[in-house]
Amino acid sequence: MSLGTKKRAQTRLAYMLVLPATLLILGIYILPILTVFGISFTDYSLVSNYYEFVGLENYRHMLADEAFGNAIVNTLIYASLFLPSSFIISLFLAIAIQERKQFRSILEVLYFLPVTSTLAAMALVWAALMDSNQGVINHWAGAVGLGPFNWLGSETMVLFSMALISLWSVIGFNMVLFLAGLTAIPSSLYEAAAIDGADHPVDRFFRVTWPMLGPTSMFVAVTSSITAFKLFDTVAILTQGGPNRSSEVFLYLTFLEGFEYFNMGYSAALSLVFLGIIFLFALVQALFVDRNVQY
């Protein structure tokens, strides 16, 4: 066999080896996205077989749609409640747990448990806990002279309650990410800091821990942001967007338009906007997380 044919045979083998994965990616990701992209330019509806090309009409409609603006605002309010608290609380917990010698692994497991549970099922538990009349949380709040709060029924409270539930479900995961980041910081840096006089906890945190956690923090921030924009199941189960659309977040609106109002074309357009937002976050992560790690 000549060298050229051998090389050609190897090339063919390489293509054959990547073929299954390529087909899967095409079938599961690329084709549906292209289909959604196509549908977003039509007035396709689930209840009628007839549809026609409407150009950018769906996107134009989006700009004028009050529900779209409402969903964006709700999502942003929810994200601004959820993101900082999920970041800060899990970082605090990670540092506190890392310094513990006893019960460390037990605590890690306890905080991680919610991550392993099914949020849809747990949402029902939260519904019971947050019940405005018989709920345990209001009972406790009453005991210290607070409340009663209308957790899921008040327009002002409901996004806060959603953020609280998501927080509960995601903290363990972020904490484990932070713990991994903390473990990777060489202890000699803390020792050097102690020799240099930076033995105050505040100095230790700002001079060593925080800068060394940079890549981890970026990763946690980005994944949490994506999680925030993907809020759906608790809303669908607990409030269905209510009361008075005050918990109607982006993904839930997309679902409503598509499967409740049967406006598949508009829903597809919303999905693409959602995809764009997620893509932006992923881009930020790819650009900063991967490049800034080189110490």
Binding site: P186, S188, L189, E191, A192, R207, V208, P211, Y295
Partner: peptide, 25 residues
């Protein structure tokens, strides 16, 4: 003052910042 085997320099700081640490503290 102590010099460590792996030097334990702060990787996120410049040389000047590394050296200024004990002074700042």
């Amino acid at each position: 003052a102590m010099v460590f085997q792996d030097y334990a320099l702060y990787p996120h700081m410049s040389v000047a910042e590394n050296m200024a640490m004990p002074l700042i503290m």
